[in-house]
Design a protein around this nucleic acid. Sequence first.
DNA 1: GTTAGCACTCAAGTCTACCGAGTGCCAGTG
DNA 2: CACTGGCACTCGGTAGACTTGAGTGCTAAC
Lengths: 347, 347
Amino acid sequence: MARRRPPPVASGDLDARKATILRAVVTEHVDTAQPVGSSAVAAATDLEVSPATVRTEMVALEREGYLAQPHTSAGRVPTDKGYRFFVDHLERGAVGAAQQSRVRDFFAHVRGEMEDVLEQTSKLLSQLTSHTSVVVGAGHSRASVLSVQLVNLDAHHHLLVTVFSDGTVTKHSVMDAAGASAPDVAEASRQLNALLIGTTLGSRIQVPSRADAVARLVREATSALHEAAPTIEGEQVYIGGSSRVAEAFDGVETVRAVLSILEQELVVVSLIEDILDADVAVAIGSEHGLEPLSACAVIVAPVVLEGETVGALGLLGPTRMRYREVMATAQAVSDELTRHFGGEPGA
Amino acid sequence: MARRRPPPVASGDLDARKATILRAVVTEHVDTAQPVGSSAVAAATDLEVSPATVRTEMVALEREGYLAQPHTSAGRVPTDKGYRFFVDHLERGAVGAAQQSRVRDFFAHVRGEMEDVLEQTSKLLSQLTSHTSVVVGAGHSRASVLSVQLVNLDAHHHLLVTVFSDGTVTKHSVMDAAGASAPDVAEASRQLNALLIGTTLGSRIQVPSRADAVARLVREATSALHEAAPTIEGEQVYIGGSSRVAEAFDGVETVRAVLSILEQELVVVSLIEDILDADVAVAIGSEHGLEPLSACAVIVAPVVLEGETVGALGLLGPTRMRYREVMATAQAVSDELTRHFGGEPGA
DNA sequence: GTTAGCACTCAAGTCTACCGAGTGCCAGTG
DNA sequence: CACTGGCACTCGGTAGACTTGAGTGCTAAC
């Protein structure tokens, strides 16, 4: 009851008490999924003030846009701005021992190609967090060609198999209506190797203009490779736990909208990249500009290898989310993933 | 109460009038999503009987398990058995001209590798039917090796790239702690070719037991290939329109359960294969034994190439589904898909 | 500045009544 | 004897009236 001066330290542009109250509203609301009333806040904090005092502060917080009231006689709910403040002033939490060891364990035992690992990782992430996860493996636009090979399927069909320096492999059909002999194909394969090894997909190649079968094959093959370039560069996307979407939102329409977005890989990739570019770890509500995801928060962590961002992982859940835990998990997995690939390149 | 003999003409084990009534209930219920009353049936059919008569028949149909009543004073709803009768006695419908041309158009313009085509096809299917689609590409367990190549990534890492006769390409990491020179790798690659070309994944290979670098590489590579065999054989699965699940069911829990099943590729594949094996085109409700899908119907069509089932496509929706249209679409797409791959192998 | 007190608001729950779609049964009819 | 019209009955759904209670905003007092 007795009055002392307001505690000086301001956190952001909110005085300490407002910040405490806002934090309490967020944590409480995340727990209960219900609007939070002034007395609940008073009880949850160590401010030792009466609900009435909390109420005045909450009015201010609402006026400043951090809180909202579903209706007059209900408690308060955090707005996107409120969540934003919350995560911006979150002290970095460590991930629990159990989780930590589960992540370690996973990466100790996971085997197989990069693609498989990333897919498994997306499953791991969604299991750990109970949210939908997205793992993006960067395209290999800057990777150079290590080897190409033209393989004979039948008289008129060949397959161009290309191996890149980042360990990815692509294939392209090459059709040849006129037909070519096996030695011709072998010779074309040899010439393609000479032509393409060391180049990247962006670079332009000098192709032979002769009219013989070998030259024709070489031309066909290189054009198949370069025409498809934009698509191959395309990142791989792995989505884990999409069923979690149905748990996160109770409006069927919201579920449908979110799932619908997740189906569009291009949209998902650019969403993740945008958040990554903006150098934020979290996009809350409508911050990312995708209207159907305005009820979601997206947490992103990059996977950096040798100073280069080679991928990213994302977690998508309702704005009402345990940011601390989920962010810590994302960080932990991202770290381990980096270590995993840093330790054994190409595997 | 009075007992008379059942009217002669039976369609299946139902007399003609009961069948008509059952059909009417199904079509009406599919349209309206509401229980169907006797007068609605009387109006919808050309039986020219009064609702009262329809009612007596419906009582019989209910007793025999074709219809059910949500509650005493409601209309009737088809049971799984009712739907089963309906689809079993469905005259094969043709797909509409608009759809037909859309399918044609799709396959006329689609380009790229088999994998891409299948993925696109799953999207097409879900767009055409408004249901979730599954496209399964059979594994290449019986395909033989056309070519293998060992590519040097760095001192201790190599990549085994294998091309199969069905046009699929796999890659496997091969580690070599001791290190090998570039000529060694080339030599190993040559030997692997000699060893593996023409074999299938099942066949056992005689590997050299010498201790030199080349032999070591050859051993490592073959074992990598064969260890992974069960996984590579694994079919590819493409799921399209998973957001449709949210439209089909209004219980959030059902949506979650169905999505959860769809996430498990193995389960999906074996579901489709089971239905295919049982030689039925449709599994309704609990017929397939997957409890979480008991509110679903699954329509399956095989993709047959040269007498061999090389894949399948499935459509998953609520039991309350337009079977005629959806089955016709599945058939049409399956046909075109067969033609597409039959016409231009490997492309 | 803080608080207790109080009047006020409003979603949610309960109760009642009622409507109407649909049924099952039965007696009458061609 | 199959069909029908008539009728009493059932029961989900809706609407309105009332109550409850959580939570608020305001204000006067400390």
